[in-house]
């Protein structure tokens, strides 16, 4: 084993890199899902509930079936169902999508804790990692490069979504619903149906993100599992200007920030770890203050979105 002390402060960037890869995946999936939903003109604040609920379901299915991949699938389906509930209720007249999101957050978390009690103790099979660091003799780097397949799927998914939103018929219809519901209706599309599909797909992705928490990292089920990643990811979408590729980079940034606090402590910088822990929130707020303007809506913001109107 290489002598850790010889790395000196290099421990920090390596830890941040590793943390970025490890911690970012739930952010990535939730934000990509939310990105889709918001581009269709609706905001789903309930993804925190989706994340927790699907983490629980994924863990339970993996435990009962022995297959973590089946768990990922079940988590995705759970997310899609919760997304469907959100979309159907929001599809009713006069219903506020932000409020429904908060309600579903509460419901999803509550249901997950309720049904998840018997799953706190058992040990389920978790997802494997692929070793990309075999060439390195530095164990820290080697380990930072053990990467889960879900992260790789996310890496491919982000540009794929950029392309799909921009260049496919499906993407065009979705964006139309997000920019002008009237225009979409004029073309003969049901805005509700478009948004239902977008919210369910978004829920599916968020669900997969949840399964990453319970089935890979940290890789167990307990009631403190999420500590707000789902809701942070919703803020992250605004940070990323509704662009899937920027969602990817921002997720990495937020993931790295989570690793920063402990890594700094390991090199003797011990002051203010509570504040370092809140760094992503300070950062998002600062970026929003700098980039927003009362005179125009945000660049890239879907015009139908309630939070930007």
């Amino acid at each position: 084993m290489a002598d850790a002390s010889s790395l000196g402060f290099w421990v920090v960037p390596i830890a941040v890199l590793g943390g970025a890869v490890r911690v970012s995946t739930p952010f990535l999936f939730v934000s990509l899902g939310e990105c889709l939903t918001e581009r269709s003109g609706r905001i789903n604040l309930g993804l925190e509930g989706t994340l927790v609920m699907s983490a629980m379901v994924g863990y339970g299915v993996s435990y009962l079936s022995g297959s973590p991949w089946l768990g990922v699938l079940a988590a995705g389906i759970t997310g899609a169902i919760l997304g469907g509930v959100h979309a159907v209720i929001c599809g009713l007249q006069r219903v506020n999508d932000i409020a429904v999101g908060i309600a579903l957050m509460l419901f999803g978390i509550g249901l997950a804790f309720y049904l998840g009690k018997p799953l706190i103790q058992p040990k389920a099979n978790i997802l494997p990692a692929i070793d990309f660091g075999w060439w390195s003799t530095i164990p820290q780097l080697h380990d930072a490069l053990k990467i889960n397949v879900l992260f790789l799927i996310g890496v491919v998914l982000a540009p794929a979504l950029v392309w799909a939103l921009k260049s496919t018929r499906w993407g065009l219809i979705l964006r139309t619903a997000g920019e002008s519901a009237d225009a979409a209706r004029a073309m003969g599309y049901s805005v509700n149906r478009i948004r239902l599909r977008a919210t369910m797909t978004g829920g599916f992705l968020a669900g997969v993100g949840g399964s990453f928490l319970s089935l890979y990292y940290p890789g167990n089920w307990n009631e403190g599992l999420s500590s707000g990643q789902g809701i942070t990811a919703v803020a992250l979408v605004i940070f990323a200007r509704w662009n899937p590729m920027l969602c990817f980079w921002t997720s990495l940034l937020f993931g790295g920030a989570a690793a920063l606090g402990p890594a700094l402590q390991s090199v003797q910088i011990t002051w203010g770890y509570h504040l370092f822990g809140a760094a992503p929130y300070f950062l998002t707020l600062a970026i929003m203050i700098i980039t927003c303007s009362p005179k125009r809506t945000l660049v890239g913001a879907p015009a139908e979105l309630s939070i930007t109107k």
């Binding site: 509930g49 509930v85 209720i89 409020a99 429904v100 908060i102 309600a103 579903l104 509460l106 419901f107 999803g108 978390i109 509550g110 249901l111 997950a112 804790f113 309720y114 009690k117």
Partner: peptide, 13 residues
Amino acid sequence: DASVLVLQGIIFI
């Protein structure tokens, strides 16, 4: 204990 949360969620929805 999460029964309270579930009920609150259902009422809210």
